[in-house]
Simulated assay, not measured.
Amino acid sequence: MEFLTAPFEVSFVFRALLAGGFAAVLCACIGTWVVLRGLAFFGDAMSHGMLPGVAVAALVGGNLMLGAAVSALVMSLGVVTVSRMSRLSQDVSIGLQFITMLSLGVVIVSHSGSFAVDLTAFLFGDVLGVTGGDVLVIAIAAAVGGLACLVLHRPFTALTFDERKAHTLGLRPGVAHVGMLVLVALATVASFQVVGTLLVFGLLIGPPATALLLVRGIGRVMVVAAVIGVVQVYVGLLVSWYAETAAGATVTLLGGVSFLVVLAAKAVLCRVSSRTANDNHYQ
């Protein structure tokens, strides 16, 4: 038991566990809609598109999370505006915003020769460096995100499975779509300090995708994804402590491994069940 609890007796590791747990719950709720709606590319693009805001905030000595939030909001609105004003698909709009924001961030960073360390933390996370204030912000974001998913459950469901019916029911799918993009931005901004922008995509997609292999029903998927995410954070921090590996990367690696293990196990069980059913049929 001491082996499983000793690392978390250290204050900064315990704060990392709290921050990671709240981020996992937030990403489970919003990531479920991302997977069901097919917004994985937007989630990935958003995680990189925050770079300009973070770069500017770092250069002027401001709050990195606030800079990331402004950048994420600009990108979300840009994707919606470009999609509506042109005949291009949303994927093209996301791609254009992605490369524009990322390039702008690199240009801003190139003017500072001392930003390399901060940029590394931004890209790969610094979960062991979170403060009590960071934990509070992530906890508030998790509460807001969870409440928004609960309130907007009906329009999100209609938008995801039958957009035309959403129009018929007066659920304003266009507004619901913008709301969904804003929530993805919220999850990305709140979680980037835990696992970094390059790896937040794993926390946002991994647990919900794994949960979809195990259960049906949006509510059940969110709950199972939250449990998977929290366990993933705990085990990831535990492994990184003893193996002396990067904490954020270890957490997200477990997400990918968990999905592949569940997928393989489900395939084996389906094959065994099919073979058993065939044997019973011939008997």
Rank of each mutant, 00 (worst) to 15 (best):
A249R: 02
A6D: 00
Q232T: 08
A267V: 09
K266E: 02
G61H: 10
A121H: 15
A225C: 04
C29A: 12
I94G: 04
H281N: 00
T197V: 03
A55K: 01
S93N: 08
G21C: 00
T197P: 09
G67F: 01
L39R: 12
D134V: 02
L263R: 11
L119I: 12
A40V: 06
A185P: 04
G219D: 15
G256I: 08
V262N: 02
N63L: 12
G53H: 04
V117K: 14
S76D: 10
L204H: 11
V54I: 11
A211K: 12
A209E: 12
D44P: 04
V239L: 13
V178N: 05
G174N: 05
G38N: 01
L66E: 15
A24M: 07
Q193I: 12
M180Q: 11
G217H: 10
R87S: 13
V230I: 10
G53P: 03
S191H: 00
A226L: 03
G20R: 05
F259V: 05
L88E: 07
T188H: 00
L204N: 02
V117D: 15
L198M: 05
T157M: 02
S47I: 01
L123Y: 04
T197M: 11
F259K: 01
A19D: 06
T188Q: 01
A190Y: 06
G219V: 07
F42A: 04
I140C: 06
G145L: 00
G20W: 00
K165Y: 14
A243S: 12
M50A: 13
P173R: 08
A55S: 14
V257I: 07
I218L: 05
V54G: 13
L17W: 05
N280W: 10
I228N: 04
V151N: 08
H111C: 10
M101N: 11
R87W: 12
L198N: 03
Y234H: 00
L64M: 12
A247L: 08
V195H: 09
L123V: 00
R271V: 01
H111F: 15
L39T: 02
A16V: 08
M46N: 14
L214V: 02
T197L: 12
V262I: 13
S86R: 04
L199M: 11
K266N: 10
A277F: 04
V194P: 08
A141Q: 06
D118W: 05
L51M: 11
L104T: 11
V35E: 07
L181K: 10
L253K: 06
T188M: 09
A141Y: 07
A6R: 15
V231E: 13
V239Y: 14
M1Y: 11
A277M: 06
A19Q: 04
V261W: 14
